[in-house]
Design a protein around this nucleic acid. Structure first.
Lengths: 212, 212
DNA sequence: TTCACGCTGTGATTCGTTTCACAAAGACTA
DNA sequence: TAGTCTTTGTGAAACGAATCACAGCGTGAA
């Protein structure tokens, strides 16, 4: 019913609105929000419809109210606890986001199979040996998993997470991971993204006389 | 003419094919490639069409030949040199991919504004102070940039890269970056992706009695 | 009071992508 | 040789999402 892409854009609008709020801006028009989010005004209005919020033809949207409406829409359910598997450079980068992160999506545990990396707290996140994965996921009621492990370990780690009760996965491993139908999985394949950029860059000629 | 999404999937097929090649598999059917790539057989055949390669109704596709055809299609142009800006945890994670990376997309330079992080070589990639960005990008003929800097610095860094001749950008900063029309930009917004996963996880109930 | 203006909300349309469905073709069997 | 099977390549149909375009509305000016 609600589209994948709409959710993604709402998340962007929300961040822009919070920035506007910090800057003391009280109202915003769809075309303004569109410009700052990289899409069109009509798109913004359609997406805002989904949250049920209604703006005024004269003032546009109330920044605080719209941010609140989107937050309520996106985070309607109880807080979704998150577990990270793989404390490499990528895993640490993800933990470093913590301060900026939404309290409705707390990163509560990290796992690694390297004994040197576990049994400590990084950025407020407790690190466990991967053997304790099921135990911690179940006792904490964790529902979202982040796969930052090598490709070879991705499928088995996903299976363990799903069996332990995870229903959403964010996969950074450059490999396709099978999950049961009730689990939502989002793949962020960095090397694929880079190949895509390189491909389209190869089609384009540099133009230095641009106006920036 | 050629779709964004087709390029992304071709990149995936290519990796799967290389794995098959390593495993000694000589031929593959569209449905098999589809299963290992997470899409449908019809989709695979459509995408393969784009590369101009033709399989046999009996043997399916020749693994080596198809991998070659996709590689030629994706990397038809000269090698696309890549520069990374931002040597934080994320930047280091990206540099660590180097060994697995395609030689047609070499990471040749990294930049940071922290003097402690530069003037050395990490994973074969030379690190420069960010002041030398334009100089190095121009002299090396770098065409692709990776933005792994804080949001606040993203727009200005993008502007500098584009002026120096970059035509493809991979943006990890959770903010919208404006680039001139001739530049291709791909956004990998980690916090947005996590919010998306959390949203859909919130809609789903855990089911432990699944068969894995 | 009346008019003109600019924006929102949304039905209708357009556009791009995915899926369907089948003709064509090689291999194997009898 | 004729028939069957499985798969590819691809036109056509179905689907989903972005865009268009305009009615409705509140405001401010005359």
């Amino acid at each position: 019913m609600i589209s994948d892409k709409t959710v993604a854009r709402l998340s962007v609008y929300r961040r822009v609105l919070l920035d506007m709020q910090d800057a003391g801006q009280a109202h915003v028009f769809s075309h303004e929000l569109a410009a700052r989010s990289g899409c069109t005004a009509a798109q913004v209005r359609r997406d805002v419809m989904a949250t049920g919020y209604t703006g005024s033809p004269v003032r546009g949207y109330d920044v605080t109210a719209l941010a609140g409406s989107i937050s309520e829409f996106l985070f309607h359910s109880e807080a979704q606890k998150v577990a990270l598997v793989g404390i490499g450079n990528l895993g640490r980068a993800l933990m470093a986001f913590s301060p900026r992160r939404n309290p409705r999506i707390p990163l509560v545990a990290a796992f690694d199979n390297d004994p040197a990396k576990v049994n400590r707290v990084i950025h407020g996140c407790r690190c466990y040996p991967v053997q304790q994965l099921e135990e911690v996921v179940e006792s904490e009621g964790i529902r979202v998993g982040i796969l930052a492990v090598p490709s070879a370990a991705a499928q088995d780690t996903a299976r363990r997470l799903c069996r332990a009760g995870v229903v959403g996965l964010l996969n950074f491993a450059p490999t396709h991971v099978w999950v049961p139908p009730h689990v939502y999985i989002e793949n962020l394949d960095l090397s694929m993204a880079l190949e895509k950029v390189a491909f389209f860059a190869g089609l384009r000629a540099p133009q230095k006389e641009i106006s920036l």
